[in-house]
């Protein structure tokens, strides 16, 4: 009896992510959710720009590559023209919270029936570790070598808190993947975000706190610890909106 194996919705292409990058875990959770709901044949993913730009190679379902930050807008078009299909976007913090803030906020505000997977690793991974809007105060990056100074670079964007101020979103949750227990919780949240769409409930966004060992300058194990000790206190985990449960 197989207890654990690679989900069918992931291809056999080796992922280009650095060793220990939790993108791989989150990809797997998305694929497991697709497998569990049996929606692989009618799912269309929208890949973003950033480290996750190549995710169209890794998912077995159809994928579209959106311009930088525009994944929720592309997903809106796909969902409206093909309402029977399940549309998800997979975006990093540079894509969703920087260049794509407008698209994200408006798609959420309109309550589009799409699923957004937001991977927050507090840094621009693909371009070499510059400060992201989600970098923590005091965090050392390539562009903030003395630490992020909030008087100059401002405060981090907290996406779940930001969107929870809108009436449009149906489901907002922030999860982490720093321990096996957290991974299980993250899987539940991602599956719920997909199930909401299948049931036609509306806009669902799951923010996953992720790691970037290469650009944080830590080993994979140390970076999980850094995520636990620094990111989780600043970005509290939990459900920020669940209209489905309120009714």
């Amino acid at each position: 009896m197989v207890v654990f194996k690679k989900p069918h919705a992931l291809t056999d292409v080796p992922m280009h992510y650095c060793p220990g990058c939790t993108h791989g875990i989150i990809h797997r959770l998305v694929a497991e959710a697709i497998d569990e709901l049996g929606i692989e044949g009618r799912t269309v993913g929208v890949a973003s720009v950033g480290c996750s730009v190549m995710s169209y190679d890794y998912f077995n379902c159809d994928m579209v590559e959106a311009a930088h930050g525009r994944a929720p807008a592309v997903a809106t078009g796909l969902k409206r023209s093909m309402p029977e299909n399940i549309i998800f976007t997979y975006q990093g913090d540079g894509d969703l919270a920087a260049i794509g803030t407008a698209e994200t906020v408006h798609a959420a505000s309109r309550g589009e029936n799409i699923t957004v997977i937001f991977v927050n690793n507090a840094i621009y991974g693909m371009t070499g570790g510059q400060m992201a809007p989600t970098s923590l105060p005091g965090q050392i990056t390539q562009t903030t070598p003395y630490g992020r100074d909030v008087t100059k670079q401002g405060y981090p964007v907290k996406v779940c808190e930001l969107l929870s101020g809108l009436d449009g979103p149906t489901y907002l949750e922030r999860v982490s993947v720093d321990t096996p227990q957290a991974v299980k919780k993250a899987k539940k949240a991602i599956t719920k975000a997909f199930r909401n769409q299948v049931e036609g409930k509306g806009f669902s966004l799951v923010e996953v706190l992720s790691t970037c060992p290469t650009n944080w300058g830590l080993t994979p194990v140390e970076s999980l610890k850094w995520c636990r000790e620094n990111m989780i206190p600043y970005y509290p985990l939990g459900v920020y909106r669940d209209k489905g449960a309120e009714k």
């Binding site: 654990f4 194996k5 989900p7 791989g24 875990i25 991974v183």
Partner: peptide, 17 residues
Amino acid sequence: CTFCALMCPDCVITITK
């Protein structure tokens, strides 16, 4: 317990019983 497989970013681990 499948913890190793849950944390593996590259789906390297398969567990059977």
